[in-house]
């Protein structure tokens, strides 16, 4: 099993992701430079957070055309697992690998804080180690995390149970008060139609070690590792 963390100019969570995967989980992990045209023998690709290409034009808009993204697109089309975190989520929506767009936060400010998330669907490669409806604590750090999709697109996402994480309060309650950025339907993370591409604004790699306050995020990566292991042994 091998993970790859893509490095764009301006990525700044690439080392955190690499650390969690290689040191905390102990899985084989490599960096993938944005000029690579071939992803090689990889089982899961992480698009990390940061400010790829300075967030010029729109967050993720330039990264979308980097050589590696064509390879990531091919990889995803073949069913490969892709996780876009924060700026990675923005890149996935700009690339059309996920529907919708991340608008500037409703309050207009950069928000860096722990948030509660309700796990909505655990029947996916990314959330199998959570329990349905479980409330977890993972930090966010973004200026543009206000998820928006056309009403038709949002309805389809909800009907297909593709929202994996919603912003909520400590008891799992949702609403204006617990929604930090104005995201439509409290969306914090969604998956693609084929269920192999995840985009989320919270940073699971910043909640993967006890000394950092929460280990809830670690289970996202562990779920992926478990799913890949099961695939290998043909259990699914």
């Amino acid at each position: 099993m091998k993970f790859a963390v893509v490095v764009f100019p301006g990525s700044n969570c690439d080392h955190d992701c690499y650390h969690v995967l290689s040191e905390v989980l102990g899985v084989d992990t490599v960096y993938l430079w944005h000029k690579e045209q071939d992803v090689g023998e990889i089982d899961c690709i992480i698009l990390p957070g940061g400010f790829s290409y300075g967030d010029y034009l729109r967050a993720g808009a330039i990264a979308r055309f980097s050589p590696v993204m064509q390879a990531v697109r091919d990889f995803a089309c073949k069913g490969g697992l892709v996780v876009g975190i924060c700026n990675g989520f923005q890149i996935l929506t700009e690339s059309g690998l996920l529907p919708g767009v991340l608008l500037p936060n409703r309050g207009g400010r950069f928000i860096c804080q722990d948030v509660y998330l309700r796990v909505e669907n655990t029947d996916t490669p990314f959330t199998s180690l959570f329990s349905p409806g479980e409330v977890v604590k993972i930090p966010i750090a973004h200026q543009q995390g206000n998820y928006y999709a056309s009403s038709g697109a949002m309805e389809k996402i909800n009907n297909e149970n593709r929202v994996l994480f919603r912003y909520c309060g400590p008891e799992g309650e949702t609403g204006v008060r617990t929604n930090p950025n104005g995201s439509m339907d409290d969306v914090a993370g969604i998956i693609s139609e084929k269920r192999n591409v995840l985009g989320l604004m919270p940073h699971p790699e910043r909640a993967s070690e006890g000394m950092l306050g929460s280990v809830d995020g670690k289970r996202v990566f562990q779920s992926v590792a478990k799913w890949l292991e099961e695939q290998k042994h043909g259990n699914k």
Partner: peptide
């Protein structure tokens, strides 16, 4: 292709 995101 680039300058505009037609979603928004």
């Amino acid at each position: 292709r680039l300058l505009v995101n037609p979603v928004i």
